[in-house]
Amino acid sequence: MTFLALERVGFAYRGKNRLFNAVSFAVRTGDTIALMGPNGSGKTTLGKIMVGILPVTEGTVRLEEKAIGDFRLSEIGRRIGYVFQSPAKQLFCGTATEEVSFGLIYRGWTVAAATERARELLDFFELGHCAQEFPLNLSRGEQQRLVIAAALALEPKFLVLDEPTTGLDDARKRQLAETLLRLKASEVGYILISHDADFCRECTERTLFLQEGGVRWREN
């Protein structure tokens, strides 16, 4: 089934030049895709369009074959996990544990169960020692792993990760790659927005290049 489809999508920020023009592509459930392109080509903007954060100025975006505008953001959030380019933008709780458990509690989990699940994920991402730390006091790499843990806690069907390897050392990049490949094996698809060509080749099946307002595909 087509999970996400962009049909002749164009976009320009108000009063600015068009970033891209008539972009069309489709993503199936379980697809793993890298989105690459030069600085300023619109990768982050396209990522935000795909998850409904930004409305398009032309064309349509369909999620599970329905217009994305017909979904509330919370409904999109149940389907797609999104990791911002700057992890600090999505950290707002008092402790790392609260960051990871927040979404689960919001969905009706008990605090105890959500906290236990948060503990498991923090341990997995080697953040156990930061469980009670204020997230904005963590290093960028730790913040990066924390937001990924929080996104995975909600077990989305699909993920969009914007530059997820920024701030990660080689060992943590390998860990992230293993995590993503495990998700892939369980039919959770993802789009990686990244400049890290080696990481993208390892973790995705195809690459979508965004350049000069258009897109082209390449098999990895």
């Binding site: 600085n39 530059e163 920024t166 400049h195």
Partner: peptide, 12 residues
């Protein structure tokens, strides 16, 4: 501090 982290190959 990590000045090439977000740059494409040419800019890096």
């Amino acid at each position: 501090d990590e000045v090439t982290a977000m740059l494409d190959e040419a800019n890096a």
